[in-house]
């Protein structure tokens, strides 16, 4: 009998029955998204890889308990988000910074962290251009904003899925996403204006130099 590995439902059922090949297919399907959640939330590839491994081990261990009450992806992303939260908590503790998870205790939270990031690898991204500059800003977002943005933009989850994975309300998903995006747009605009001003300054310098040379 040939097994049909195309449908996710089938894959899950086979994996639950102990089919290693089916589980590998599930890993292939979601691995990149989970790794990228780790990468953007934890800020470095080593932690992201460790987290990815932990997530899959957890899924492997608890797959038998998955009853299909929610979508598999929702269940999987919730595990990933929880795992991510544990890693972040540890990392914040070692840096002696407060970390309150992704919940919605106070909605007056700042979009960007004003924390001391001297120990963070994100420092490397600062003062660069284009993609790297954007990475730096994303890394500076407070975790509760960053997780929502990453799940939406990098993993492509719907608002409903994000709400379920992060365990926040749909309204919170909307407002956090809107605020995070607005803040990033503001940064980008400011940066562009700055570089445009610098360019025009350089241009005028150039012109002055050229005209000086002509003289």
């Amino acid at each position: 009998m040939t097994k049909d590995y195309s449908a996710e439902q089938t894959l899950i059922r086979l994996a639950q029955a102990g089919d290693g090949e089916a589980f590998t297919r599930l890993v292939e399907r979601y691995n990149r998204q989970i790794y990228n959640i780790g990468l953007r939330m934890l800020g470095n590839p080593e932690d992201a890889a460790d987290m990815t491994q932990d997530v899959w081990l957890k899924i492997y261990r608890y797959l038998a308990n998955f009853r299909g009450d929610s979508a598999f992806s929702t269940w999987l992303y919730r595990i990933a988000v929880n795992c991510c939260r544990d890693y972040l908590r540890l990392s914040y503790r070692t840096r002696e910074l407060p970390f309150s998870g992704f919940g919605e205790e106070d909605e007056s939270e700042a979009v960007f962290e004003i924390a001391d990031r001297s120990a963070g690898p994100e420092e490397l991204y600062l003062h660069r251009e284009g993609r790297d500059e954007l990475l730096g800003w994303v890394a500076q977002l407070s975790p509760q904003f960053r997780i929502v943005l990453v799940l939406r933009e990098i993993c492509g989850l719907s608002y409903q899925e994000i709400a379920a994975a992060v365990e926040i309300s749909l309204g919170t998903v909307k407002s956090r996403l809107a605020r995070a995006r607005a803040a990033l747009v503001e940064k980008i605009t400011a940066s562009r204006e700055q570089s445009a001003a610098a360019d025009s300054h350089m241009d005028s310098e150039d012109e002055r130099g050229r005209s000086d040379g002509l003289r």
Binding site: N31, R32, N36, R40, R131, L135, I154, G156
Partner: peptide
């Protein structure tokens, strides 16, 4: 731009 930040698996 954010979607393009997705990196391939190492």
């Amino acid at each position: 731009a954010l979607t393009a930040l997705s990196e391939p698996l190492p």
